[in-house]
């Protein structure tokens, strides 16, 4: 029989995978991986502030991540430095300041390791509320704006010319990323949040031929990775967050060569199909 904490972990992980599947597609398509990573790094400062001043860690994270996102957009518009340089500066500065801020906390009630790498086995009912609340908000907003976001991702000016409020859409994506960071923090940890967004989506990409299918497959793969990671972590007594990500990475490693093989075969088949087809028809 499964223990309660395992059930909670599974419920949390599946919720996270659902969110990650849909949003992860946009992270992959729009090359937001580094942005997400930097945002996540800034979360530790939010955690520290939340604990220092005694309000919710999740709220602290959302506030700090939002401020970080706004700062980034403002700096990027100055066109002084390349975006990846800015992200590198901000991400590591935020992480360092976060660790410094955390050192002011009473050590006994703070588990830095848990925040960096996540600890899904200690998920509480309160965490589950955040996860499923977050899932409703993120999936709801994504679904409602799916076509506009997709069009904007394919061609920003085209979307604009057809009446998409692209600035609003950028804000929306940032807001959703912020929520995801706040929600995923406890599950997979600051350092691994982006991997849950990217790896299942990148794996799914190899298997599908439409955007909706990619999101669904990413969610399913993410959920499978969560289940495998949780049981692996229990059986082998390994840290849960890294176990989940390792499971997701294994899936990617399995699918990627397969998709290369399928692609090369279909290319060969296409080349062969030209002259061969009429012959086959006659026969």
């Amino acid at each position: 029989m499964l223990e309660d904490f395992v059930l909670r972990a599974l419920a949390a992980g599946v919720g996270v995978a659902l969110i990650a599947g849909a949003l992860g597609c946009f992270v992959v398509w729009r090359r937001m991986a580094y942005f997400g990573d930097s945002l996540a790094h800034s979360a530790l400062l939010g955690v520290a502030l939340g604990l220092l001043y005694g309000f919710s860690v999740n709220l602290g994270t959302i506030v700090v991540c939002s401020a970080f996102a706004v700062l980034l957009v403002w700096l990027r518009q100055k066109h002084v430095l390349a975006t990846d340089t800015l992200l590198g500066i901000l991400a590591h500065a935020a992480l360092s300041v976060g660790v410094v801020a955390v050192s002011f906390l009473d050590n006994t009630r703070f588990d830095l390791h848990g925040y960096l790498f996540g600890d899904i086995l200690t998920v509480t009912a309160h965490d589950l509320w955040w996860i499923y609340g977050g899932a409703v908000v993120v999936l709801g907003l994504l679904l409602a704006n799916w076509q506009a976001l997709t069009l904007m991702t394919i061609h920003e000016d085209l979307a604009r010319a057809e009446g998409v409020h692209t600035f609003r859409m950028h804000l929306l994506l940032m807001f959703l990323m912020t929520i995801v960071v706040a929600v995923f923090l406890r599950i997979v940890g600051i350092l691994l949040i982006t991997s849950m967004l990217i790896i299942p989506a990148a794996t799914a990409r190899q298997l599908v031929r439409s955007t909706g299918a990619m999101a669904a497959a990413a969610a399913a793969l993410g959920a499978a990775a969560v289940v495998a990671g949780i049981f692996g972590s229990i059986v082998f007594d390994t840290p849960s967050g890294p176990s989940i990500v390792a499971a997701a990475a294994l899936m990617f490693a399995a699918v990627f060569p397969l998709s290369l093989w399928v692609r090369s075969r279909s290319r060969a088949a296409n080349e062969a199909a030209g002259p061969a087809e009429p012959v086959r028809r006659r026969a």
């Binding site: 992959v28 398509w29 997709t150 991702t153 394919i154 990409r205 599908v208 031929r209 439409s210 955007t211 299918a213 990619m214």
Partner: peptide, 9 residues
């Protein structure tokens, strides 16, 4: 250039 990462017909 349409991005290969986006599977859309």
């Amino acid at each position: 250039t349409a991005d290969r990462a986006i599977p859309i017909s």
